[in-house]
Amino acid sequence: MPVITISRQFGSGGEAIARIVSQRLNYLLLNRATITEKLKEYDVSEPEFSQFDEKKILPGDGDTSELEKSYLRYLEALHNFFYDLAIRENLVILGRGGQVLFKDFPPALHVKVIAPYKNRLQRVQKLYNLDEAAAARLISEQDQDREEYLRHAFGCEWFDLDFYHLVFNTGILGLEEASDLIIQLARSLEHGNIVSRKDYEEQLMKESLQPGVVLDASGSPPAFAHPSEEEFARMLDFYRIKWLYEPKTFPLQWDSEGNITEAFSPDFYLPEQDLYVELTTQKQKLVWRKNKKIRRLKELYPDINIKIIYGRNYRSLLQKYGIEEKKRS
């Protein structure tokens, strides 16, 4: 499901943009209020969340302190919570390293909202009814916390612009205009019209050889051709491996007029691993035709990384997890 992450400088209006975007798109907004409530299901209490939310805990000397252990548990719970929700819901995630967690998530849009210091100071004074000195102190503390949180939790720099599709300066552009642009792009994302940078680079590379045909990048639940594929997809979901079902068809043979006479669509593509996976539940002696196609695929597209899971390996995988094999109905 599409995920929009919004990273923001304190006082830049990023939170307001997140609210507008989530309301208009009817996406679930994950901000402080909603996360506090829902994280209780992950055994994170409200005081614990307030203590750790977007903050860095300094490591103590010697053995791990209880505080550090709680902090790591908190991060784990928060990230599990985000990933679990992203499978089921369209999300707008405010801060909390969403841009890192969903960096290679195919239907994702990563936004950073900044503003000149002067504008932020005015906004914070007005919003929290503070004098200039108190507002300045708050901005400095909040920005520092967020910066250190990213560094501590992910080893990443908050201002590494490589993470973002868009950077809005709300000192120049209004909140409404920025929100409109995000909504417009999110709708393209819903229709699969935005590809990730990795997909784009891969597509360019393939096109310079012999193009694969992009068939489906919508992210909607696929109609699996065989129950084994559905079970395999569940396994991947369980282990949080991102996948696409039959996203590309590779032409293998052409007639004299250039029409495609034979093609091959691997069952799965795992974008994080840049790996295609073909599942076959046929008996070994019947897979020669598929093997022949895969050999041809490797000849024509030598840079493609493909793994074949044969029937006996698939059955042993089911045995490992104590699953009974389902036949096609």
């Binding site: 784990e76 599990n80 990933y83 679990d84 499978i87 079970e231 569940r234 396994m235 979901d237 369980f238 282990y239 949080r240 089911l318 997890y321 104590g322 699953i323 009974e324």
Partner: peptide, 14 residues
């Protein structure tokens, strides 16, 4: 561990 067979097996957790 992955249990399989269930409609919503959830996700791996520590």
């Amino acid at each position: 561990s992955y249990g399989g067979g269930m409609e919503h097996p959830g996700a791996v957790r520590i």
